[in-house]
């Protein structure tokens, strides 16, 4: 029978699935070497300074971990959505939504008992990010609007929502800059180690890695989400409520990105400002792909990215891009 069917790549043995991203990382380093060599730099020196910069001292190592927490969360957010073929490119906007919600609680929630402030920030950030992702998921399932485009456009909408708030109702009194009032002390994430910025966010990120791993591997919902991603027709045929599965997936995905925003507000900046994220949401896409959409892979690749980012500011511009492309192959 001759028909139109797509010949897919044969499944890889498990060792290859691990080896591929590793090979991709090496390829990046080699490709990244080109400009250094061209500029007449010392390759060995460049890379050793990169490693030293990222991991060499206590301070640098901790900074790398600090940077890794939002990246893990946005990477997880994207990977969880992509696994169900919900093309959530909107982690950046969902991160902002989470940050705004956390700031609102942190600044205006003075009536709350102090032990409740951080949980309230976290929950509201998760819900805000989640709802911002549910909106395009709803448009996708009910109205068949392309999710790539809507999640992307909603990023820009959210940027302007934030601009509106920071130049308007949420602007700090007496400030001409677009920044909010600082959040109260009770909303600050606790610091894990003295003399560092390492904060609760890393713990949250690791807990989320484990939670998503568990959802994927052991729950009915994780199984359904996977089936919807692979073949939505077959899942629907088999009695899976595909619309609901996509909506729930979106809620969790957006929520994770929202948590990244909460962390940036409650542990790094202590108030809301326009450049709260240097593109964590977009980097999350790369991280998710390099991590093969697996939560543990995402955690490792987020760590790798944060190494490069902390290790070398100039290299960070180039970083990950070839990684990304090879990672997807």
């Amino acid at each position: 029978m001759v028909g139109l069917s797509i010949v897919r790549r044969q499944t890889l043995p498990p060792w290859a699935e691990i080896l591929l991203p590793v090979a991709a990382i090496f390829a990046t380093l080699i490709i990244g070497a080109l400009p250094i060599v061209l500029a007449g730099g010392n390759l060995f020196k460049a890379y050793s300074s990169l490693v030293y910069g990222a991991l060499g001292t206590r301070f640098n190592l901790l900074e790398t971990l600090v940077k890794a927490s939002p990246l893990i969360l946005t990477g997880l957010a994207v990977s969880f959505a992509f696994r169900a073929r919900f093309w959530n490119i909107g982690a950046e906007g969902q991160l902002f939504a989470g940050a705004i919600a956390a700031t609102a609680v942190g600044v205006y929630g003075t009536a709350l008992p102090s032990w409740l402030v951080i949980p309230a920030c976290i929950v509201s950030g998760f819900i805000a990010g989640g709802l911002w992702a549910v909106l395009p998921a709803f448009l996708k399932t009910k109205l068949k609007v392309d999710d790539v485009v809507t999640t992307l456009l909603l990023n820009y909408v959210m940027i302007h929502v934030m601009g509106f708030l920071l130049y308007g109702p949420m602007q700090a009194a007496g400030s001409s800059w677009p920044r909010s009032e600082p959040i109260m002390d009770a909303a600050h994430y606790p610091i894990l180690l003295p003399r560092s910025r390492l904060h609760l966010g890393l713990v949250i990120a690791i807990v989320m890695v484990l939670a998503i791993w568990f959802i994927n591997a052991r729950t009915v919902f994780g199984y359904r989400s996977k089936c919807v991603g692979v073949n939505i027709n077959a899942a629907h045929f088999s009695g899976v409520n595909t619309d609901m599965t996509i909506l729930k997936t979106a809620l969790i995905s957006g929520g994770l990105a929202g948590l990244a925003g909460v962390g940036e507000v409650c542990a790094i900046h202590y108030h809301l400002l326009m450049d709260i994220s240097p593109g964590y949401g977009y980097t999350g896409i790369v991280i998710a792909m390099l991590g093969n959409l697996h939560p543990v892979g995402v955690a490792l690749s987020a760590f790798f990215f944060s190494c490069i980012s902390i290790g070398s500011q100039t290299m960070s511009r180039m970083a990950g891009i070839p990684v990304y492309i090879e990672g997807v192959i």
Binding site: C227, N231, A234, S238
Partner: peptide
Amino acid sequence: ISTGVCMDLSVMDNMILVDH
């Protein structure tokens, strides 16, 4: 292929698609 099974999933995953 398009409604019966999920081609990328395992025999086991496909077998419990209805009864999971």
